[in-house]
């Protein structure tokens, strides 16, 4: 039993998109822009040269937030979306009826339709791939050249994730709507 979470030191992101590629490769995600479990969000840089806003050029890598209070899990009519024993929001493709309610309910646009299984898919922290093989990192973390991502167990007080959450200021996306994401961005 664990409580998995991910920390994103997003200011280190250089938008190389290696994480997007690694995720697709590791988890066998379909090609094309529509099918993606993770992404790097980018802003248009604000201001006019030479007075450009440097903070506006920050990149925001993101994915399923694995909310502790996940709207997608709550709205699923068949429990196809569920929490596993490690608090990861999972999808049982066999139970998914493709009503798409979870896609509408997710505040983070983290879900898409896998057109091979015709069911909704999303990030599962590499549960059925890398973690199942006994590895301790997700594909996106392992490939990141600037060490943006850190995956680990919040319940283990000695984990690096717990240490960083104790010692560094962080925030979550759309915190105001009470979804309690388990993706934490370091300030």
């Amino acid at each position: 039993m664990a409580k998995y979470a991910m920390i994103l030191n997003y200011k280190n992101c250089i938008n190389c998109k290696a994480c997007e590629v690694a995720c697709k490769e590791e988890n066998g995600i379909e090609l094309g822009a529509k099918a993606h479990r993770i992404w790097v969000g980018t802003y248009d840089i604000e201001g006019k040269y030479p007075l450009l806003s440097i903070p506006s050029s920050t990149f925001y890598p993101s994915q399923c937030q694995h909310c502790a209070n996940a709207p997608c899990e709550e709205v699923c009519p068949t429990h196809a979306t569920y929490y596993d024993k490690n608090g990861v929001v999972q999808i049982d493709a066999q139970k998914c009826i493709l009503c798409s309610y979870c896609m509408v309910a997710c505040p983070y646009d983290a879900r898409y339709v896998d057109t091979r299984t015709m069911s909704v898919d999303k990030c599962n922290f590499c549960s059925d791939t890398r973690l199942a093989r006994g590895l301790k990192t997700t594909a996106c973390q392992a490939t990141c050249p600037t060490k943006v991502r850190l995956f680990g167990d919040m319940d283990d007080p000695n984990s690096e994730v717990s240490h960083i959450l104790r010692t560094k200021e962080h925030f979550t996306l759309k915190a105001g709507i009470g979804t309690e994401p388990r993706l934490f961005y370091i300030k």
């Binding site: 009519p77 068949t78 429990h79 009826i97 493709l98 009503c99």
Partner: peptide
């Protein structure tokens, strides 16, 4: 519109999501 209508009947019964408004509505 529902991707899997037969599966819907089966799992709406066997694995009902009581907190889902779509389940209640159906």
């Amino acid at each position: 519109e529902i991707g899997h209508p037969v599966r819907m009947v089966i799992y709406n019964t066997l694995s009902p999501g009581f907190s889902s408004a779509i389940w209640g509505m159906g």
